[in-house]
Each structure stands twice: as structure tokens, then as C-alpha cells.
């Protein structure tokens, strides 16, 4: 813990060293994308500012709300605290790359249940749900709650989200 704190301090004090731009070749939604950015830039801002992939949302910046959820090699991660330097050549999938035409079973279930209200949190919710179903195609209610607990929805669409996850699970297992 102490060591981390110390390292962090050093980074902070010698910020100029770390704010030198570097070139990264990222694998995003199946395409290689080149960006020149500070290595500490969270992948969230690389997506939104540099690649105009704005489906991934900012909600808190501290991995508490899930709005920024993307997949890294198929695992749901919070893009707001994942630096571009740590991504390497791992494959990033964003909401824009989840399916070609919005026909991923989770997206279809979301439309069927008509989940969204304001919609702002929903890309993150969908990415978390899709990663859950990849790992666990037939989750129980409490497994769904567990997996989705990191995604906040101020509009309060949780009951619909849960219903949609179950529908998506059913279509996936029947497919």
C-alpha cells in the first residue's frame, strides 16, 4: 500500500516525464487505431476525444458507476481508470462494436423490454450484461444482481435491466 502511494507520488511530482506523448496502436472493435496521447490517459478519453467513439460514457471517473464499461479481451472493465498504456494489444470492444446492427442478444432484449429512460447509463449496463452472459450463459437472479451492481442508473431502470438480461440469456441458450 505504502509503496503504491510512494510510486504515485513520484508520478505526480515528475508529471512532465509522463505527459510526453506516445504513440499507441490499439485494437478497438476489430480495427487497429493509432493515437498519440499521454500514456496515462484513460482509455475512456481516448475513445471519446480521439476516436469519437462516444457510446462509452463518463459518469464518475473513479470506477464507481459503470457508465464507461467496455470489454478488454471479453472481460468487462471500467474504461475511466484503465490507462491507454496498460491496454497493449488486448482487444477492446465498445458498445459500437458489440454487434454490427444492434442485434446482439443483449441489445435485442433491451429493445424488447424497452429498458432505457434517459439512456445515458445503458451502454455501460449492456456491456456489463454482455460480458456476464459470455461467462455465465444462464445466471441466477443473484448472479445478475452481483454482476450488475457496479452500474448505476439514476433513472431507476433496474427491474427492466434484470428482465432484459434474463431474456437475453434465454435467447442465447436457445440459439
Amino acid at each position: 500500500m505504502n509503496l503504491i502511494a510512494q510510486t504515485f507520488n513520484i508520478i505526480y511530482n515528475f508529471k512532465e516525464i509522463f505527459t510526453i506523448m506516445a504513440t499507441f496502436n490499439l485494437n478497438i472493435n476489430g480495427k487497429t487505431q493509432q493515437v498519440d496521447v499521454d500514456p496515462n490517459t484513460p482509455i475512456l478519453w481516448v475513445l471519446r476525444d480521439h476516436l469519437q467513439l462516444v457510446g462509452t460514457k463518463y459518469g464518475c471517473g473513479i470506477a464507481q458507476c459503470g457508465s464507461c464499461t467496455v470489454h478488454m479481451d471479453g472481460v468487462a472493465v471500467r474504461a475511466c481508470m484503465l490507462t491507454v498504456a496498460s491496454v497493449g494489444n488486448q482487444e477492446i470492444t465498445t458498445i459500437e462494436g458489440l454487434s454490427e446492427n444492434g442485434d446482439h442478444p443483449v441489445q435485442k432484449a433491451w429493445l424488447e423490454v424497452d429498458v432505457p429512460q434517459c439512456g445515458y447509463c445503458q451502454a455501460g449496463q449492456i456491456m456489463t450484461a454482455a460480458a456476464l452472459l459470455d461467462k455465465n450463459p444462464d445466471p441466477s437472479d443473484s448472479e445478475i444482481e452481483m454482476a450488475m451492481n457496479g452500474n448505476i442508473c439514476r433513472c431507476g431502470t433496474y427491474t427492466r435491466i434484470k428482465k432484459a438480461v434474463k431474456i437475453a440469456a434465454a435467447t442465447k441458450t436457445n440459439a
Partner: peptide
């Protein structure tokens, strides 16, 4: 009737103010 913006929401289309981008724009 279903939300007319439903598909755009679930596919992450730019719908929100914070999604706006314009050439030459500063943050």
C-alpha cells in the same frame, strides 16, 4: 409504442450533449 430512440441508445449513437464533437473544438 417503443422508445423512438431505443436502437440509437443501445448501439451507443451520439445522442447526448457530451457526445458532441466539432472540428476545431476545445474542451
Amino acid at each position: 409504442k417503443k422508445n423512438v430512440d431505443g436502437l440509437k441508445i443501445v448501439t451507443g449513437k451520439p445522442l447526448f450533449g457530451s457526445d458532441i464533437h466539432r472540428e476545431g473544438m476545445f474542451i
